[in-house]
Design a protein around this nucleic acid. Sequence first.
DNA 1: AACGATTTGTTCGTATGTATC
DNA 2: TGATACATACGAACAAATCGT
Lengths: 260, 260
Amino acid sequence: MAEPMYRQVAEDLRRQIESGDLAPGARLRSEVELREEYGKDGKEISRNTVRDAIKLLISRGLVETRPGQGTFVMRQVVPFLSRLNMDPEAGDVEGGVYKSEVELQGRAPEVTDPRVEVQAASDLVASHLQLQPGGQVISRHQQRKIDGTPWSLQTTFYPMEFVTRGATQLLMAENFKDGMVKELEASLGIKQVGWRDTIIARPPTGNERTFFDLSDKVQVAVFEFRRTGYDEDGNPVRFTVTVYSADRNQFEMRAGRIPG
Amino acid sequence: MAEPMYRQVAEDLRRQIESGDLAPGARLRSEVELREEYGKDGKEISRNTVRDAIKLLISRGLVETRPGQGTFVMRQVVPFLSRLNMDPEAGDVEGGVYKSEVELQGRAPEVTDPRVEVQAASDLVASHLQLQPGGQVISRHQQRKIDGTPWSLQTTFYPMEFVTRGATQLLMAENFKDGMVKELEASLGIKQVGWRDTIIARPPTGNERTFFDLSDKVQVAVFEFRRTGYDEDGNPVRFTVTVYSADRNQFEMRAGRIPG
DNA sequence: AACGATTTGTTCGTATGTATC
DNA sequence: TGATACATACGAACAAATCGT
């Protein structure tokens, strides 16, 4: 009796799921049936104990519950594969993620117009843009969807100084065909010649759960990509944060010579 | 009464945490105190309702509970930063992650001797090594720690054919100073000239939870890096899967010219 | 070392609400 | 509409871990 009952039940169900006895999409026995199934000596276990076991499986991302229907083994969604582009000459589509034509084949990407704000820089933004904490920055925020499915949240920060130097495009709530990096080159002569990316995986915030349509119940992480771009003098040009839901995204990188 | 009580309580506590009223590491009021605090008209709410609220916060990674002590706001650990190396000439330390000297300064990495097995290839392994499903492969598995903290689990797969062609080092349960990639070049003349990486974030398996010492309670993801290496003829040389706990790891990539 | 107080963990029972078929 | 299934909320009892006396 070392293991609590609810863990024993969860462990047994987990085994059935991972062995394939319970296939993805399959319905588990109802809570009432499981009470009977795991009882001993004709004595049922409590419905609450069954529910505790199911909660443990939910927290591990193995099952989901649907009121009025039952408990179901989670289906694996086919992840969307994005190429991380390491060539500074090849443009900078989607703020750090290069969507190859093949991968987007037949898919319908949508991008909202940016929400533009002037803000005091957070510590994170200030350090990446080498500003004083609290210095003024432009933030441009966009939401992206693919085939109607929420795909990414992206915010890019630029020093306020760029506007006073003449890059008034930064304040316009619209997308530019060749991207803001090219706009800055045209209007200020600032050319991005390199960047540094940091990749993080973490639990989603409340806003992110809402946008990505993640119920409180599912246990998923989000990717956070932070990209700092630099000009020829080594000064930061912009700082971009992009968030992706980890359950429907994978990223690919290539190095050297590979086939295909 | 649209929102269930346990969510209202969780939401209020979340606000206190994110506003800083409850700092990282701080102890929440005990369950008994919270019963009183969120009751109305002198009537306390049930302890189970308080506990449901706390479970919700746990699942979001905001707090942790310690028996006999209380519930505490989660502390953010300082993540370990690894550089992803995109230069095929610069070696391939740590199976895909290049640990710069600076980042390892003062840290003590430990690597177990590999556990070597001959296995039938899974579908995943077979497809990356371009073998028939069920074909024989060598698997070499290692665990890595830094300063005693579990850091990564790594398994590399090689075609069994390499052994019959003379690369008997593949079967030795020891580490080679310059890495297996160099060994294959020396013994078979197979030179890795490029690779493809896939990056995934997902919930940890049971084994991974054990190795990384993640309790059932904390909601964290793991990074999974899959690297397929190719030789000059475009044939796969090896397939490496490395798993990192996402709560203590970040990854960095650089492109073009950047300062520092 | 022992004990009691405090706090969280597990298990049960019960009632009622809401969603689905 | 009724039956079924999960969701919320309450109460109760005992176990296990921790801490101070």
